[in-house]
Amino acid sequence: MAERKQLHREFSEELSSLWRIAIAPSVWAIHFVASYGLAAVWCAKWSDATLLGDVSAWRVLICGASVVALGIIGWIGWKAWRQWDFLEDWDYTHPLATEEDRHEFLGHAAFLLAVLSAVGVIATTLPALLISTCT
């Protein structure tokens, strides 16, 4: 019984780490769907609308969404980087089945996912930056 309680406590402590792992890819996924959906609907309904001078509104909106998404991913990435070296002892390896190594491993995984998500968001934004027209 005591062992189960101990396990439960250990996993509860990592709840925030699991959120940290999930947030960056989720932001990427939401940004992806929103960008493609926005471009498709906007171009079908209001292709002539502009913002910031004569730039197509959908391009401005997608780029704005990218800045917000990269901000969130960057913040998560920074937190994950800190978690990877939780005790700030310059130890970036985590091979043991200890609480500390598990915590640092989850930080490592979250950091790598944040990097991947940032690359994904940038790749999704490139067409909006470089392809200027709806047609």
Partner: peptide
């Protein structure tokens, strides 16, 4: 890949 993708995408508006 980022450089090649950017360079390739830049050609698309020219095609239209």
């Amino acid at each position: 890949l980022g450089t090649l993708l950017t360079w390739g995408l830049r050609a698309m508006p020219d095609q239209r």
